[in-house]
């Protein structure tokens, strides 16, 4: 048995069992994220020496690159990091509930809902302040998820039905988006398209600050609920006999998952596959205990999106490509590998 550390409060209402190995993985991921941060801040159309970046960050630089670092690159990196964290946790929760390693917010329609709402706003109400886009997208994701959940309800929600209905709804939202784009003027079509592919292009501190509350509320919530996912993974009957309110817990977990996915979609567009890959990387590294899966999956998601965006904006200079393309490039082969891996389950 590996060594474990237990973290709990006095009344035992919050309790984590953290394996030391998970702690190690977590620290490595933190380090990796930090390294990526420095790399992300230093490369781009003007390359800044990493040491200069560090100096600038702790406030002892000469301010020569302050604009590039603090106004252009830092918010963009933070936003992609945050979006990745949200998607990583959201996907992890969904896979836990559905008990299927192939579930993720973009495959079962949650992302699609946010995308429809956002495309409607971009194409038909271009005059509305763009800072409202996140709220519109989150509202869309929430509404569509509510529909999926209601439609999947038949004396309770079974995971399989949830996925199938999600796929149907995803097809519907996809065709709505197509319709909007075919019918709209070409200028807004391409703008909507870039957004759909997933991009943190033009991120500013306002975006970062408005994303922060979602993170602060829902990431800790995901931690608190993590124990319940462990129970849910055992199956409905076992979970019920262990005293878990299966349907109520499932609803709560899905709500968290939606809020996180919605926030990510809202600020970073339709970046796919992160919610799928990150949990798998985490499981591969730290095993199946949900308490340690949450932080590792979150960081894995953050690292993936950050890396994708750094590559996307530097690989084809001066072109600034949407990060979503690169995430899909990594994610799709991985997905096929997963289908192969889980062929007997």
């Amino acid at each position: 048995m590996s060594k474990r550390t237990t973290i709990r409060n006095r009344s035992d209402s919050i309790s984590f069992l953290v394996e030391n190995r998970s702690m190690f993985v977590f620290l490595v991921f933190i380090l990796l994220s930090f390294l990526l941060f420095i790399i992300g801040l230093s490369i781009g159309s003007t390359i800044i020496h990493p040491l200069t970046v560090l100096k600038e960050l702790i406030g002892i630089g000469n301010g020569e690159h302050a604009f590039v670092i603090e106004t252009l690159r830092l918010p963009r990196l933070l936003l992609s990091f945050f979006a990745g964290i949200c998607l990583g946790i959201s996907g992890l929760i969904l896979q836990g509930i559905v008990r299927n390693p192939l579930a993720s917010p973009d495959i079962i329609g949650i992302t699609g809902g946010g995308a429809v709402a956002a495309v409607v706003m971009i194409t038909y109400f271009p005059t509305i302040d763009i800072t409202l886009l996140p709220f519109v997208a989150i509202a869309g994701a929430g509404t569509v998820s509510f529909f999926i959940y209601t439609l999947a309800w038949k004396k309770g929600v079974t995971p399989i039905r949830l996925v199938l209905i999600g796929i149907g709804v995803q097809a519907l939202t996809g065709s709505f988006i197509t319709m909007l784009m075919v019918l709209s003027p070409s200028y807004s079509t391409s703008e909507a398209y870039i957004w759909l592919t997933g991009s943190v292009y033009g991120a500013n501190w306002g975006n970062v600050l408005s994303m922060l509350p979602w993170m602060i509320v829902f990431v800790p919530l995901a931690f608190l609920f993590s124990r319940k996912v462990n129970v849910q993974e055992l199956g409905d009957d076992v979970a019920a006999s262990l005293g878990s309110h299966v349907q109520r817990t499932r609803f709560g977990l899905i709500a968290i998952s939606i809020a996180l996915a919605g926030a990510a979609v809202a600020f970073a567009g339709g970046i796919g596959f992160v919610g799928l890959i990150a949990p798998h990387i985490a499981r591969r590294l730290v095993g199946r205990s949900f308490g340690s899966l949450v932080p590792v999956s979150a960081l894995a998601g953050g690292i993936i999106v950050m890396l994708a965006d750094i590559v996307a904006r530097t690989a084809f200079l001066p072109l600034d490509l949407p990060a979503g393309v690169f995430v899909s490039g990594m994610g799709a082969p991985f997905f096929i590998y997963l289908l192969y891996k889980t062929r007997n389950s």
Partner: peptide
Amino acid sequence: AFFTSFTQGLLV
């Protein structure tokens, strides 16, 4: 999802 995301990428 795989084909669509690449299609979108190319079109962007």
